[in-house]
């Protein structure tokens, strides 16, 4: 199987802040990580490769430093890594992004499956995967928590709010996956070292064939961000459960005391 995985490097959102004046994300000083659900997408792809043979390519659109995220993918099973990077891609919305990714996919080869994470930590739109399927004119399955290939079709288990659904899709197809069963593996020392030396193929907008420049970046974007703001967030609760009621009470008292609440 020839599998493509689309990934994105995102700011570690535990730390995310929005500039109150410009309304854009403050990225300075925030660690960039591989989008967690994209790591699950890669894991899903590598498991398909392990089951049916073939090759896994990872593709990302982003600044040159996104190579780090791609190297991370190579360390856990991606065979090839491609970064499309160009100022012309800047300020792309999901439509422009999915167009650029699908045009690159067409150039890179004949893929049987394109796997994406369900959504990214930063945008959380969940649109890029389904849009790629539309650009490619392929079938698509979303919310995938397990998949296999049977008689030339992709058989996928979808994670629903009220249960699970098993669907079949003709190949080629786009699958966007959830975390549920795709806990990413750890790299090995050897794979980590090898990934560090791996050459990442870098393509500019000019190097992607038949790319309509009007459909990428800001000019290709149909959505404009009017305003971004930090919503007040509630603090996560905390469960204290010790072996006995007394011990639980004591621990609670100590925490309250240390927080100077009592």
């Amino acid at each position: 199987m020839n599998i493509l995985v689309c990934v994105k490097q995102v700011p570690d959102t535990e730390e995310i802040k929005i500039d109150p004046i410009t309304g854009s994300l403050i990225r300075e000083g925030v660690a960039a990580i591989l989008n967690p659900l994209d790591a699950c997408a890669l894991e899903a792809a590598v498991r398909l490769k392990e089951a049916y043979g073939g090759k896994v390519t990872v593709l990302s659109m982003g600044p040159p430093q996104a190579k780090e995220a791609l190297k991370q993918c190579v360390a856990v099973g991606a065979d090839e890594a491609v970064l499309i990077t160009d100022r012309a891609f800047k300020d792309a919305d999901t439509l422009a992004t999915s167009y650029a990714l699908s045009m690159t996919a067409k150039q890179l080869g004949e893929f049987d499956v394109i796997v994406c994470g369900k959504h990214t930590l930063d945008g959380e739109t969940g649109q890029v995967g389904p849009q790629i399927a539309e650009h490619m004119d392929w079938s698509q399955v979303t919310h995938v928590m397990d998949m296999k290939v049977e008689e030339g079709k992709l058989v996928a288990v979808r994670e629903m709010e009220d249960g699970r659904e098993v669907v079949e899709a003709t190949l080629p197809c786009v699958a966007s996956v959830t975390k549920a069963s795709y806990t990413p593996r750890y790299p090995t020392i050897k794979s980590k070292l090898a990934a560090g030396k791996k050459e990442i193929l870098t393509l500019s907008a000019d190097e992607i064939k038949n790319l309509d420049k009007e459909r990428i970046g800001m000019s290709g974007s149909r959505t404009k961000v009017a305003k971004s703001f930090s919503a007040p967030t509630g603090q996560a609760g905390m469960v204290i459960q010790e072996e006995t009621g007394e011990a639980t009470g004591r621990k609670l008292a100590r925490i309250l005391h240390e927080a100077k609440l009592v």
Partner: peptide
């Protein structure tokens, strides 16, 4: 760089 990366891997594990 290699030592830093491997150290980070061990830390994560």
């Amino acid at each position: 760089e290699e030592q830093k990366e491997l150290k980070a891997l061990i830390k994560e594990f």
